[in-house]
């Protein structure tokens, strides 16, 4: 099993993703420089968090023109497993791999804190080992996590079961109070129709060890690892 973590100029959670995969989950992982145009041989591609191109112009708007993104699009179209975290999620929406957009938090401030997430869809590789309705404690750290999609788009997301995680209270109740950034329908993570591309604002790679205050991020990583292990056909 081998994963790739893309390094864009300004990525800053690339190392954390790499560390989680390599040191905590003990699987093979390599960095992929953003100018690379060959990403064959990977079982999954991570787009890490950070401030690619300083968030200049618009979050993710420049990174999506990096040479690697055209091959990521092909990789996703072929059914390859992709996970975009935070800025990675923003790049995926800019690249058109996921619908909607991420706007400035409604507080207009960057927010770093633990949030609770309700697993709304456990039928995709990234949440494969989670229970439906399970509550995960995972931190956020973003200034632009306010997910927006128009009403029609939202109805399609719901219809296709593309909402994967919602911000909730500790007990799993999805409330306006639990929504840290103003995201439509408390959306924290969505996938594409096919379910092989997931974008999420919270950082699972930051909570994979007990000493860091939560290890619920393991559910996401283990889901991916278990899914790949159990899928007979390599994606």
């Amino acid at each position: 099993m081998k994963f790739g973590v893309i390094q864009f100029p300004g990525s800053n959670c690339d190392y954390d993703c790499f560390y989680a995969l390599n040191d905590v989950f003990k699987v093979e992982v390599e960095y992929i420089w953003h100018k690379q145009t060959d990403i064959k041989g990977y079982d999954g591609i991570f787009l890490p968090g950070g401030f690619t191109y300083g968030d200049y112009l618009r979050v993710g708007a420049i990174a999506r023109f990096s040479p690697v993104m055209s091959v990521v699009i092909d990789y996703a179209a072929a059914g390859g497993l992709v996970l975009g975290i935070c800025n990675g999620f923003q790049i995926l929406t800019e690249a058109g791999l996921l619908p909607g957009a991420l706007m400035r938090n409604n507080s207009l401030h960057f927010i770093c804190k633990y949030t609770y997430l309700k697993v709304e869809n456990n039928q995709i590789p990234h949440t494969y080992s989670c229970k439906s309705g399970q509550v995960l404690k995972v931190p956020i750290a973003h200034g632009d996590g306010n997910y927006y999609i128009d009403e029609h788009g939202l109805s399609l997301l719901i219809k296709n079961n593309q909402i994967v995680l919602r911000y909730c209270e500790e007990n799993g109740e999805v409330t306006p109070k639990a929504n840290p950034n103003g995201a439509v329908d408390n959306i924290a993570a969505i996938c594409n129709k096919e379910g092989n591309v997931l974008g999420m604002m919270p950082h699972p790679e930051r909570c994979v060890e007990d000493c860091l205050g939560s290890s619920d991020g393991k559910y996401i990583f283990n889901s991916i690892l278990n899914f790949i292990k159990n899928s007979k056909v390599k994606l």
Partner: peptide, 8 residues
Amino acid sequence: NYDYMVRN
């Protein structure tokens, strides 16, 4: 307002 967790 600060990212106090990055780098794990």
